[in-house]
Amino acid sequence: LKGYACRHCFTTTSKDWHHGGRENILLCTDCRIHFKKYGELP
Score class of each variant (00 low, 15 high):
Leu1Glu: 14
Ile33Val: 15
Arg22Leu: 10
Asn24Glu: 10
Trp17Met: 07
Thr29Gly: 09
Lys2His: 03
Thr12Glu: 07
His8Lys: 03
Arg32Thr: 10
Pro42Trp: 02
Arg7Ala: 15
Leu41Pro: 05
His19Lys: 12
Glu40Gly: 09
Cys9Lys: 03
Asp16Gly: 03
Thr12Arg: 08
Arg22Trp: 09
Arg7Lys: 15
Thr29Cys: 10
Gly3Trp: 03
His18Gly: 15
Tyr4Trp: 06
Phe10Thr: 10
Cys28Gln: 00
His34Ser: 12
Ser14Pro: 03
Cys9Arg: 01
Thr11Cys: 06
Thr12Gln: 08
Gly21Ile: 01
Cys6Ser: 00
Ile33Glu: 15
Thr13Val: 09
His8Pro: 00
Ile25Phe: 06
Ile33His: 14
Arg32Val: 08
Ile33Thr: 14
Cys9Ser: 03
Arg22Gly: 12
Leu41Asp: 05
Cys9Asp: 01
Leu26Gly: 04
Ile25Met: 08
Thr13Met: 07
Gly39Arg: 09
His34Pro: 00
Cys31Lys: 01
Phe10Val: 03
Asp30Lys: 10
Lys15Leu: 08
Leu1Gln: 05
Phe35Ala: 10
His34Ala: 12
Phe35Asp: 09
Thr11Ala: 09
Asn24Tyr: 05
Glu23Gly: 09
Cys6Glu: 01
Lys36Trp: 08
Lys2Gln: 09
Asp16Val: 02
Leu26Trp: 07
Thr11His: 04
Arg7Glu: 15
Glu40Ala: 11
Asp30Thr: 15
His34Met: 06
Lys36Ser: 14
Trp17Ser: 07
Ile25Arg: 06
Lys2Ile: 05
His18Asp: 15
His8Gln: 04
Asp16Pro: 01
Lys15Phe: 07
Leu26Cys: 15
Thr13Glu: 14
Phe10Met: 10
Tyr38Val: 14
Glu40Phe: 02
Asp16Cys: 01
Arg22Val: 12
His19Val: 14
Lys15Glu: 13
Arg7Met: 13
Lys2Trp: 02
Cys28Glu: 01
Ile25Cys: 05
Glu40His: 09
Ile33Gly: 15
Thr29Asn: 11
Tyr4Val: 07
His34Leu: 04
Glu23Tyr: 01
His18Leu: 12
Lys2Ala: 09
Phe10Asn: 05
Thr11Tyr: 01
Arg7Val: 10
Lys37Arg: 13
His19Gly: 11
His8Asp: 01
Lys36Thr: 14
Leu26Ala: 04
Leu41Gln: 03
His19Trp: 06
Gly3Asp: 14
His34Asp: 04
Glu40Gln: 13
Phe10Pro: 04
Ile25Lys: 07
Ile25Gln: 10
Lys2Met: 10
Ser14Val: 02
Ile33Phe: 10
Arg22Lys: 15
Asp30Gln: 11
Tyr38Trp: 11
Cys6Lys: 00
Glu40Arg: 08
Gly39Asp: 15
Tyr38Cys: 15
Gly3Lys: 08
Cys31Ala: 00
Gly20Thr: 04
Gly20Glu: 11
Leu27Ile: 07
Leu1Ala: 15
Phe10Asp: 10
His34Gly: 07
Leu1Met: 15
Thr29Ala: 11
Ala5Arg: 14
Glu23Ile: 03
Gly20His: 06
Lys2Ser: 12
Asn24Thr: 05
Trp17Gln: 06
Phe10Trp: 11
Trp17Gly: 08
Cys9Gly: 02
His34Asn: 06
Lys37Ala: 12
Arg32Phe: 14
Asn24Phe: 05
Thr29Lys: 08
Gly21Trp: 01
Lys15Arg: 11
Asn24Trp: 07
Ser14Asp: 11
Lys15His: 12
Cys9Val: 02
Glu40Ile: 10
Ala5Cys: 14
Cys28Val: 00
Lys36Pro: 03
Leu26Lys: 05
Leu41Met: 09
Thr13Ser: 11
Arg22Ile: 08
Thr13Gln: 12
Lys37Asn: 10
Lys36Glu: 13
Phe10Leu: 11
Asn24Leu: 07
Thr12Phe: 04
Leu27Cys: 06
Thr29Ser: 11
Ile25Asp: 08
Tyr4Ser: 11
Gly3Pro: 07
His8Val: 05
His18Pro: 03
Lys15Asn: 03
Glu40Thr: 10
Leu27Tyr: 04
Lys36Cys: 09
Asp16Ala: 03
Cys9Ile: 03
Lys36Leu: 11
His18Glu: 13
Cys31Asp: 01
Asn24Asp: 12
Thr13Arg: 14
Lys15Val: 10
Tyr4Leu: 09
Arg7Trp: 07
Thr13Phe: 07
Gly21Met: 04
Ile25Ala: 09
Cys6Pro: 00
Tyr4Gln: 05
Asp16Leu: 02
Lys37Val: 08
Lys36Asp: 14
Trp17Cys: 04
Gly3Tyr: 06
Leu41Val: 05
Thr13Tyr: 06
Trp17Glu: 07
Glu40Ser: 11
Gly39Leu: 05
Phe35Leu: 11
Tyr38Pro: 06
Tyr38Arg: 10
His19Arg: 12
Ala5Gln: 14
Asp30Tyr: 11
Thr12Leu: 03
Asp16Tyr: 01
Ile25Gly: 05
Arg32His: 12
Pro42Ala: 03
Thr12Gly: 04
Ile25Thr: 12
Thr11Gln: 04
Thr11Pro: 01
Lys15Gln: 12
Arg7Gln: 14
Leu41Thr: 12
Tyr4Lys: 07
Glu40Trp: 05
Lys15Tyr: 06
Ser14Ala: 06
Cys28Tyr: 01
Lys37Ser: 11
Thr29Pro: 03
Leu26Pro: 06
His19Gln: 13
Ile25Asn: 04
Pro42Leu: 01
Asp16Trp: 01
Thr12Asn: 05
His34Val: 04
His19Asn: 14
Gly20Met: 06
Arg22Tyr: 15
Ile25Pro: 08
Gly39Phe: 02
Asn24Ser: 13
Tyr38Leu: 09
Tyr4Asp: 12
His18Gln: 15
Lys15Gly: 07
Arg32Ser: 13
Cys28Leu: 00
Phe10Glu: 14
His8Ser: 09
Lys37Tyr: 08
Ile33Trp: 11
Glu23Arg: 05
Arg32Asn: 11
Thr29Ile: 10
Ala5Glu: 14
Lys37Glu: 12
Cys31Gly: 00
Cys6Met: 00
Asp16Asn: 04
Gly39Trp: 04
Arg22Cys: 11
His34Glu: 05
Trp17Arg: 05
Ser14Arg: 02
His19Thr: 15
Tyr4Glu: 09
His8Arg: 06
Cys31Gln: 00
Cys6Trp: 00
Cys9Pro: 01
Phe35Cys: 07
Lys15Thr: 13
His34Tyr: 10
Glu40Cys: 11
Cys31Pro: 00
Arg32Ala: 13
Glu23Met: 07
Leu27Ser: 01
Pro42Asp: 00
Glu40Met: 07
Thr29Met: 07
Gly3Ser: 09
Gly21Gln: 06
Ala5Asp: 13
Arg32Gln: 12
Lys36Met: 10
Cys6Gln: 00
Cys28Pro: 00
Gly21Lys: 03
Thr13Pro: 02
Thr29His: 02
Leu27Met: 06
Asp30Gly: 12
Ile33Ser: 14
Leu27Val: 04
Gly21Val: 06
Cys9Gln: 02
Phe10Ser: 14
Cys31Phe: 09
Leu41Ile: 02
Gly20Ser: 06
Lys2Arg: 08
Cys9Glu: 04
Cys28Trp: 00
Lys15Pro: 10
Ala5Phe: 15
Phe35Gly: 04
Ile33Lys: 13
Arg7Asp: 08
Lys2Asp: 13
Thr13Ala: 11
Leu27Thr: 04
Asn24Gly: 13
Lys2Gly: 09
Cys6Phe: 00
Leu1Arg: 10
Asp30Arg: 08
Asp30Leu: 04
Leu27His: 10
Leu1Val: 15
Ile33Met: 13
His18Ser: 13
Gly39Met: 03
Asn24His: 10
Glu23Ala: 09
Trp17Asn: 05
Arg22Asp: 13
Leu26Phe: 03
Arg7Ser: 14
Glu23Phe: 01
His34Gln: 10
Gly3Gln: 03
Tyr38Met: 09
Lys15Asp: 10
Tyr4Phe: 12
Trp17His: 08
Arg32Trp: 15
Lys36Val: 12
Ile33Pro: 02
Lys15Cys: 04
Ile33Cys: 15
Trp17Asp: 07
Tyr4Met: 14
Ile33Arg: 14
Arg7Tyr: 11
Asp30Cys: 05
Lys15Met: 11
Cys31Leu: 00
Tyr4Cys: 09
His18Met: 15
Arg22Gln: 14
Gly21Ser: 11
Cys28Gly: 00
Phe10Tyr: 10
Thr29Trp: 12
Glu23Trp: 04
Thr12Asp: 08
Cys28Phe: 00
Pro42Arg: 01
Trp17Pro: 08
Cys6Ala: 00
Gly20Ala: 08
Gly39Cys: 08
Ile25Trp: 11
Phe35Ser: 07
Leu1Ile: 15
His8Tyr: 05
Asp30Pro: 11
Gly39Ala: 09
Phe35Trp: 13
His8Cys: 05
His8Glu: 03
His8Ala: 07
Leu1Lys: 13
Gly20Ile: 08
Gly3His: 11
